[in-house]
Amino acid sequence: MEGNAKKAETGGIRGILRVLSRIHHRIMGLYLFILFLILWQIAPSVGWTNPVLIPSFSTVLAEGAYIGLGNVLVHIAISMKRVFVGFIISTAVALPLGFILSGALPRIAEALNPLMHFLSQVPPFILYPVFLIIVGPGEFGIYAVILWSAFWPILFTTIDGMRGIDARLIQCARSMNAGNFAVFTKVVFPAIFPNLVLGIRSGLTMSFLMMVGAESLGAASGMGFMIRNAQQIGAVARIYLGALLVAIVGFLLNFAAVEVEKTLVTWKEIAQ
């Protein structure tokens, strides 16, 4: 990069062009994104689409301004609180359970395997009406959906990770007189750590997506509620606004999770 900068100074226009082309390669992905927004903006106004059904980008932004940034943020904050609370509870149950099942009770884990995979296929939304009947409307149903969505990816990646540990690493530690605790903290945990982070990340993504759905089924706040409510009152632009917000927040959440993963799992990241 330094050499390049020098060339740019000495090579005049040619150098500047080279730097520009480098920047151009960096932000290639952004071009298509911008193109998408431009299309969204002009398609309804030039009559390619029905502006009532697909309002332009600026109309959606104006809708956001009309509701007010504060109100939008409140909805986002409420949704995020639900995701994180549900997700943390889910992790707190699934992680230890994964360790215990695959580490200490492998036979029970094997016996439970078909049942667990069967249950994991139950769509989280099904749980909402069930909880509605059992405990009545409210937060419980939403949390149940979020818990359920995050639970299985975390549990399964933990169990898979435990299975994938190189037995020789444990033998090596044992041959050096390591007890169970040391084997767990110094071998098992670091060995499956990449799996854990991966499982937690997919659990988080899943619970975020399912949270939006659960909110749209029956909540009085949050991004999912915003979308359903907009649909009920026929505020089309607001539906798009809600979808846009969900996409942005989900994107940022995933981006943050990937960054955290990269920072935490350095040895595996480079190894691949």
Binding site: D166, Q171, C172, S175, M176, N177, V187, P190, A191, K268
Partner: peptide, 19 residues
């Protein structure tokens, strides 16, 4: 059982990849 006076080099090194 494993003891302090005995060390083994296992087949295929068995190094800890995260260390």
């Amino acid at each position: 059982g494993p003891a302090l006076n005995c060390g083994i080099v296992l087949q295929g090194y068995a190094l800890f990849p995260w260390r």
